[in-house]
Design a protein around this nucleic acid. Structure first.
Lengths: 158, 158
DNA sequence: ATCAAATTGTACTAAGTTAGTCCTGTATAG
DNA sequence: CTATACAGGACTAACTTAGTACAATTTGAT
């Protein structure tokens, strides 16, 4: 169903939690687990992955924890997804790594998949953590070919 | 990695094959299996699913086979994906079916996921089977917020 | 009428991926 | 020195996907 894994979903929740408490001291894994109602082992694992992708900065020891590495507006949804799921590709054909697709060179729609993939990536690149924090600021979004999609002011999609 | 399943990929290939032979008589599963170099059992299964979603029309018996139910330009990539993978949602939160997400009502980014999902859906809705057949006709595509993505004339993405 | 070609429907198995847990090690503030 | 919190890896169970197989049904042609 072209869907994000649950863990990725949780990752977005955690990033939003951390972003919301900017200015506050470091957020610990336990702390975030309590706030997000997720098991601490899972939270811990996700924070590690977000750290390794450079989206978070950590401090060890007592009074340790995590902060955002950049401002929310400079962290894209695409980056967060990639941090947890690995480099995103809609199909293996679109990963630029040759030899993965068993239809190889005579695959008739390889180039099309790259087009689709690029469009999807681009959408996710443009939506940032800041947008996730402040849904009201994102009132419209233009889809491929410039058609405007109305997005309801409450943050809900009609 | 937010990717399509292999079967979906095959489904796009099959639809492209059928679209390319419009005007010709019905295409059989065996026929398409040979052309696409896929196992016939898999092809048969996919054609059934595409049929049930109303994207194909079938005729049984000798001289039977499949044709497109509509013109290529009126069949979106989103429909083809949905036919094989079920209704698309980036996360379970975005399916409009309540009770699936264990964070339920207090999930802080539910509405945002719906925004992301809608943008992605919209991109896939705008790309049609016709675009897959004639990649040269799709030279640029606009991403969310109207930024133009260049797409190389050869059909390859730079 | 009968046969052969083709779709229809269902059920099943194996493989791969994802979710989630646990344990040991390392750094640091007090 | 010690309690706290991150770091890294290994591991298991559950779920999903890919792929196969078979019997039933429909239909055109001889």
């Amino acid at each position: 169903m072209v869907r994000l894994g649950k863990l990725t979903d949780y990752g977005l929740v955690l990033m939003t939690c951390i972003a919301r408490s900017q200015g506050a001291p470091l957020r610990t894994a336990r702390d975030l687990a309590r706030e997000s109602k997720l098991p601490i082992s899972t939270v811990s694992k996700l924070l590690k992955e977000l750290l390794q992708s450079g989206l978070l900065i950590s401090h060890r020891g007592t009074k340790g924890g995590y902060v955002l590495a950049r401002e929310p507006k400079d962290i894209s949804v695409l980056e967060m997804i990639a941090a947890i799921e690995g480099p995103m590709a809609l199909t293996e054909c679109s990963t630029d790594i040759t030899g993965l697709c068993n239809l190889e060179s005579y695959c008739p729609i390889k180039s099309n998949q790259q087009i689709i993939n690029r469009a999807v990536r681009s959408v996710l690149e443009k939506v940032t953590l800041s947008d996730l924090m402040h849904p009201l600021h994102l009132t419209t979004i233009e889809d491929a070919r410039g058609k405007v999609l109305p997005v309801i002011a409450s943050g809900r999609v009609q």
